[in-house]
Design a protein around this nucleic acid. Sequence first.
DNA 1: TCTGGGGTCCTAGGACCC
DNA 2: TCTGGGGTCCTAGGACCC
Length: 452
Amino acid sequence: MPPSPFMLTSFPTAILHVDGDAFFASVEQAVQPALKGKPVVTGKERGIIACASYEAKALGIQRGIPLHEARAAHPQLVILPSDYETYSLFSRRMFTIMRRYSPLVEEYSIDEGFAELSGLRRLFRASYEEIARRLQNTIREELDITVSVGLSLTKSLAKLASKYRKPAGFTAVRGRHIHLFIQRTPLDKVWGFGPNTVHLLSKHGLKTAYDFAVRPEAWAQRLLGKIGRELWNELRGHPAYPINPDPKTSQASISKCKTFTSPSADRNFVYAALIRNLESAFIKLRRHRLKTVLLTVILRRRDFSDGGLEARLNRATASTQEAVPLTRTLFDRLFREGLDYRATAVILGRLEEDRLEQPDLFEDRLRIDAMTRAASTVDAINARFGKHTVSLGPALFLHRPKITGRDEHPWRKTALFKGETARRRLYLPRLRMGDLGERPAEHMAFCTRGSE
DNA sequence: TCTGGGGTCCTAGGACCC
DNA sequence: TCTGGGGTCCTAGGACCC
């Protein structure tokens, strides 16, 4: 065996990565043992497969494929709606078990976590491998689900190791074996190397993680910046990413995105879809008792290019209506006649807790209170009768999509496009609700489902 | 991959201030 | 009024992740 070029022996640091095997489907099978051994998929409510059990994967079922296709090909498929409450419960239990083995545990996602084992051999009177296997067995025994485990010197290597054998796999990569392991690791398997980076690296003749790690550090830094330097170190067994044991702070943004069944150039329809996203995002915002001050609107075109604008509300709010005028303004700046759109998205940023507020001296208290009351009333009705039973007026246009031919406005397209693009690049003023003046009553009106 | 939905982080360059 | 330099903040967009 050639000696390691990285001059590391066993485990100067010991990082564990625990990865749930087909987590959602496994939890369903743990909760309903009758489903064990059967091809189970989740995601019924969305119409696409969110997670497939290993039995389903054996049939060729993958994440993301439409349910009707899968069902047509495999009538025996057990199709379940996602049950995030239960998945979260199992997730918490999994991390609780991990914390029995290490004080330094990072909850990376619902089904993945890291644990630092460095220095714990004496406490457990066991090798790192043994500790890792005990942890893995405890999860299987107590939760009746399997996880795959990777043990190595850094988070990136541990994550690669846990993927190496699945399901219920265990892979340890010691310092002196790193070079052998990453020689077998294609670039696209590395955590942080996406399609673009892999393409760039392949143009330099690189194929494996090893090829990358034996280049000079300065080269990696120059080509890929911070990430390049960090991954270069991680892949050689020098931690660049510490375990972050802090519990998740509240999220930084809430977004809602919806793709149309077919692309549309109809202004009213696209705007209606956008308003629907806005409502959904604000419903989630209020459910989490948050408010937002930063609004981003994105219109995705037929060719998958995006046009997006971000602007600030003049105060943090949880009221959909308060955000409508700004949404309208951003939409009007983004929308171009004659272009086909395939999706709209709304992102609410700069979230803060929605606690009792100090009223601003200059705010229109009555109007704000009215909007707050309206929002809670709408939430209550929708909770009782179904989401979007009551929604904002413009959403009416959702029910009569009109597909406009794209060559209907050929003469406007180029002219508008050039001018608008240039203007946007040069100058984007901050918009405030106060600048917009009175808005037509359209924005304040509600409609109810089926009222057409 | 012929593309669903919800997120995070990084960076270049402009705006703005002194 | 023009010029220069430097620092900080912000925005748009790219890239990636589950």
